[in-house]
Amino acid sequence: METSAPLAITPELLLFGGIATAAAMAAVGVVAFNNAVRSALCLVINFFLLAFIYFTLQAETLGIIQIVVYTGAIMVLFLFVIMLLNLGGSGLLQQKGDKRMPVAIALGVVLFGLIASQLLPGLMSVTKPLAPDNFGAPQNVGRALFTQYVIPFEAVSVLLLVGIVGSILLAKRRI
């Protein structure tokens, strides 16, 4: 394994570094803020930046659908619910000193180290996107969805339908 090779700084790597750092900071913000709306906003930023990471990996369809579905629809519903429930009280999410906290942090670091030790060596040498051109073009994604993965794709649509029917059943007693 040639992990000792000097890391070549390419524009792709710089772009990735910038976006990934910002996304990671936003992810930390999600759990660090005491205010529910700010946490949700950090999640919005994280989802938005994740879409740009997809763009740099030639997966533009996935990226734009990430923005449409997560940033544009699901997070708006999150904000909607938070605002309706009025979780604005800043003390609500304040955590008091907890003796289990150091143990949890230690275990978390160990888990993180384990995952990183398995994943990082393979990824260290990658400095630019390896996907071919048009890898994530809408035409190719659509063709794959409707030929190779047609059964999982349709199964997911049935799952969504079941979800909708179930939520209507729960929300409306009399139909």
Binding site: T61, I64, I65, I67, V68, T71, G72, A73, P138
Partner: peptide
């Protein structure tokens, strides 16, 4: 899709 995404 960009139009739909940004307008959302």
């Amino acid at each position: 899709l960009w139009i739909i995404a940004v307008s959302s």
